[in-house]
Design a binder for these strands. Structure first.
Lengths: 335, 335
DNA sequence: TTGAAAGCGATACCAC
DNA sequence: GTGGTATCGCTTTCAA
């Protein structure tokens, strides 16, 4: 008994007027008499007429929707950015649809290619890990060539010409390291599960820079890397033969693992070993001790992204912008 | 200098053959000669031809994409379900697009209405809090009437006829309460920020059922409710004049707040006060003490949802199903 | 004030 | 083997 949405054609048949009249009446065209407008609108309401979005978009060549392509939502940074995007997008007449790539190049390319051929007007995108490793960006350049501007954020591609929004990763970790050094710490280890992507490398660079400025020679041993699954045991292993007086986690997994390992060693935090790192602001206060974190300010990033993209859509030829937003060191009890 | 995607028409003009020939050649129709196929395909590749998805979908009346409408992604349950959905959807020829309602009725209705008119073939949906409060489901019935089946999960609407996937909330909290009672606890308090939605009420019901079976008279005071912002102070307030020997958190916010309050009181966990509750599996092991949680098994829920929806799409007239999946009590050190 | 017709881009039936 | 034409549902220009 199901019937698909009623169309203009069917309405026109019922009312015995032309399709154009129906269309104009529903769109409140001044060409149409008050009376027929009423009649048409009543009929449309009665049948719960909803215009076919596909047809309308095909005709107009614009969709007023933006795709947000994210590597994962199991990472609070990206959900924060999403929140920022949403709070800003509601102020516009655009909609968003979200696509999760699960760090897969394949899915990213497929999503972008698919969505760029009619479905959306533009993209907000942070590349998947695999894309960064593969260094294959054809889908991105194709979308841009196809008039679908991209605003890249966080995991951006240097060589792609587009608007970009970044956190200052290097500076943030530099500041964190500096803060620990100034507080008297001398032997700082870092843990990371993201050392193969640019963001992770920048963060490590900040660490190195701070050490250097303090005249401390870098010991590569103090840079502990691993996967999400292995990082905990890597840190454990490290702690068997090393006793740093501070840890910096370069991502949430690494931070939580470091915190746990240090606690399991029964080291006093922060007196014996301080712990600082990237982690969700919702979780940090619930940890013991409350964790000093580096907050990337995802909401602000999201809002900035939307503004850039809307501007770009309005004015496709303006010069590309690169906005760098500062991360914030939130001092709590673990340092 | 930007040009939009090249179309069949333009290709046909360049090659001097008809549009139909181009179309057929690209679709490997047996009607077309090998030679022209080669020529057409080369030209298409050269110009990076991509078919317009809108046009194709408009013609075919199907889109092979499914909308996933979620209240929030700042809740690990939903991101887990999303993960489950994705692992299952990749096995099909469907795509998903995600829409976040932010617990707003307005956004939910808008998304569903917009997407159901051409963009997607069906929905996976968990209603927003506001929708449950308002009890306005016109957008849902409209979508269903419009041949866009919905699989509802978690926050489902009883009166809507559709496939449904649920966790057994009542049973899960019943089991958790029972487990605490059997371990010798006698005065169990619960904390909840979701007491105004059905899920929360079911969980509370499980608590009550267990108490009753144990012959313990319910004290309404022991049911602490609040918003995400207020729940912590509500629990603090409660603990000023009450000393339960166990806490159950009915959602992550409530659970973490209860844990924190109990810790701040310097009660020994779990000897003096046990703490059990809904919380993300990634966080629970990092808390002190490691938290005993109720795991909703979001991944399995996600996979089940997809299977149901794909079946429904293939066979729109089959009877509606309601699948209830069990939650799992993960015992750790806080109980 | 209303209607006919072209067109958005792709597909498919039917001639030739 | 190839091309013309109708069609999906809607908007819009131009005629009447």
């Amino acid at each position: 008994m199901k019937k698909s949405n009623i169309t203009l054609k069917e309405l026109s048949k019922i009312l015995g007027v032309s399709i154009s009249t129906i269309s104009k009446a529903l769109n409140d065209s001044p060409e149409i008499s008050h009376d027929t407008k009423i009649k048409v609108k009543e009929l449309a309401a009665l049948h719960n007429y909803q215009p076919n979005v596909l047809a309308r978009n095909l005709k107009s060549g614009t969709t007023k929707t933006i795709a947000v392509v994210l590597p994962t939502v199991k990472n609070n940074f990206f959900t924060e950015v999403l929140l920022g995007i949403e709070t800003e997008i509601v102020k516009t007449d655009y909609n968003i649809i979200i696509s999760i790539t699960n760090e897969s190049f394949e899915k990213e390319a497929q999503s972008v290619n698919n969505l760029s051929n009619g479905i959306v007007d533009g993209f907000i995108l942070s590349t998947s890990e695999e894309t960064q490793v593969k260094q294959n960006f054809n889908h991105l350049t194709a979308a841009i060539d196809n008039n679908k501007p991209i605003v890249m954020f966080d995991r951006v591609i240097k060589t792609i010409e587009s608007d970009k929004v970044l956190e200052d990763n290097r500076e943030a970790v530099y500041k964190a390291t500096n803060y620990l050094l100034k507080s008297g710490k001398k032997h700082i280890a870092i843990a990371s599960t993201i050392n193969n992507i640019t963001v992770g490398k920048s963060r490590t660079a900040g660490y190195k820079k701070a050490l250097e400025e303090f005249g401390i020679t870098l010991n590569e041993n103090d840079i502990i890397t691993g996967s999400q699954d292995s990082i905990k045991s890597e840190v454990d292993h490290y702690l068997k033969t090393n006793k740093p007086d501070a840890f910096i986690g370069l991502d949430e997994d690494a931070t939580l693992s470091a915190l746990k390992s240090v606690k399991q060693k029964n080291y006093n935090i922060p007196q014996e070993v301080a712990v600082v790192g990237y982690a969700n602001q919702n979780i940090a206060p619930h940890l013991t001790p409350e964790l000093t974190t580096i907050d990337q300010n995802g909401i602000e990033i999201g809002r900035t992204i939307v503004k850039l993209l809307i501007d770009r859509l309005k004015n496709p030829t303006k010069p590309y912008e690169k906005v760098v937003l500062p991360s914030i060191l939130c001092k709590r009890l673990s340092s």
